[in-house]
Design a protein around this nucleic acid. Structure first.
Length: 409
RNA sequence: CGGGGCAUAGUGAAACGGCCAUCACGAGUCCUUUGGGAGGAUUUAUUCUGAGUUCGAAUCUCAGUGCCCCGACCA
């Protein structure tokens, strides 16, 4: 992608109407645009990140045998009245229609499964979707961390015995940790015991430590897992004695639903036994916000390699110099042909300072600068985001270097 | 939903009830510039909406709307 053609440009000033760090940085760098409170457009750079996270989630869900579908967002009233969740605050309703916007999908997936799970031979099954959810939040806040419209992965599993559900529940825990690891959040994310809420006796949250978080968790020094405040206040269980209190943002939540919904919609096996369900949510757009909150410095964002909008930011200074310009174009073509994702700053009217500051703000993991100075040495300058160190590298060695080192970025 | 704050150009800010609403950045055109936000010339507004007070309102009053923050809420 040539930066001169990119839809968005960066801005120097923080938006007046955003306080949260993720909103400030994402807005200044042109990743998102706020349309209304808690409602954001994902612009080209932002969408690239969102899609990468989405694909990581998708791959990990597929790896535990879950099958992807896409359910509607516009949902008829009947199903919701059966579960008593039509007149809840979360639900946006369409005036004069018996339709509401989906904020969760048990009411849809459960009756849907009646058509496809015909006997215990069809079990277990795990079905998920990645879809925009709508929630009438009493207070949207913190940029893309808590929105009224947001992207969420919701997975539902169906079983005819506890062992099967428990086994799948544990597999999902592992899959979730692989997702957080691939997003660079492994060291910051804790499995957290949560209260049963309205649904069930067993639920876990995945909490990422950040001061932007809304929740308080207590991390057990002995087992490395955490307990949320609600549970902690009730009983200091888990055996451990030493806890560390941290602010955290909930980036995932898994539940054992039991038969709550299968009973309402009469979803059962051939023996007339109601199926047992599990439910596993993960906020994709919230995860993106959490990553920004964790990885940044005073100059901008610092994307982990797997979710970065591009893996290389190629910057050409001295665009007035034809030799530099020509060489930069050449390098860009070579990188493109090597299937590397490159944002190429080919803007000729921008000063060096502006271009380099944009690199820091946008936060692509590796920066390659070519200028009169480097060209004299037949080299380019390599710098990783977040490191001060720069090194000159002969242009002829560039591709080999990237092939070997791109994994380490 | 309770409490607080804010609303002026694309963005960020300034302006005592009184002259043509000012400045910076951005953007457009022309010229010069290029290793950490460069210089000159020129262009860039329905002061959120509606009512009211006043000779006169960006400024005061009332109502509405929107946004942010704290709390409550929250698969």
């Amino acid at each position: 992608m040539k930066q001169a053609d990119l839809l968005t440009r960066t801005v120097k000033e923080n938006p007046k109407d955003e306080i949260s760090l993720n909103a400030k940085l994402l807005t200044r760098a042109g990743f998102v645009d706020k349309l209304a409170s808690g409602i954001y457009t994902y612009l080209p750079l932002g969408l690239r990140v969102l899609s990468k996270i989405e694909n990581i989630v998708r791959e990990e869900m597929n790896s535990v045998g879950a099958q992807e579908i896409l359910m509607p967002s516009l949902l008829p009233k009947d199903n919701w009245e059966k579960t008593g969740r039509w007149n809840v605050e979360e639900m946006y309703k369409i005036h004069d229609e018996n339709l509401g916007l989906g904020w969760t999908h048990e009411e849809i997936i459960t009756p849907l499964m009646k058509k496809h799970i015909l006997s215990s031979h069809d079990l277990p099954k795990a079905i998920y979707q990645i879809q925009s959810k709508f929630r009438n939040e009493p207070r949207a806040k913190s940029g893309i961390l808590r929105g009224r419209e947001f992207l969420m992965k919701d997975l539902y599993s169906f079983h005819n015995n506890e062992e099967s559900l428990n086994e799948y529940y544990e597999r999902i825990k592992k899959a979730y940790f692989r997702i957080y690891e691939r997003c660079g959040l492994k060291d910051k994310t804790y499995l957290t015991l949560a209260g049963g809420g309205t649904f069930s006796s067993s639920s876990h949250e995945f909490q990422t430590i950040t001061s932007a978080g809304e929740d308080i968790i207590y991390i057990c020094k002995e087992c490395g897992n955490a307990i949320n405040k609600e549970v902690f206040d009730k009983k200091c269980s888990c055996g451990g004695k030493d806890f560390i209190e941290e602010k955290a943002i909930e980036v995932g939540n898994i539940f054992k639903l039991g038969t709550k919904y299968s009973k309402v919609f009469d979803l059962k096996d051939e023996n007339g036994k109601h199926l047992i369900m599990g439910c596993y949510g993960l906020g994709v757009s919230r995860l993106m916000g959490a990553i920004v909150e964790v990885f940044n410095d005073d100059k901008g964002m610092m994307w982990p390699k797997n979710v970065a909008p591009f893996s290389i930011h190629l910057v050409s200074l001295d665009m007035g110099d034809n030799d530099v310009k020509q060489k930069a174009e050449e390098i860009y073509d070579i990188l493109q042909n090597s299937n590397l994702e490159v944002l190429y700053d080919n803007r000729d009217e921008k000063t060096a300072g502006e271009k380099l500051n944009d690199c820091d703000l946008i936060g692509i993991p590796m920066r390659i600068v070519i200028s009169q100075k480097t060209l004299k040495e037949e080299s380019v300058e390599i710098k990783k985001r977040g490191e001060e160190k720069t090194e000159l590298l002969k242009i002829k060695d560039l591709i080999d270097f990237l092939k070997n080192d791109i994994q380490d970025i």
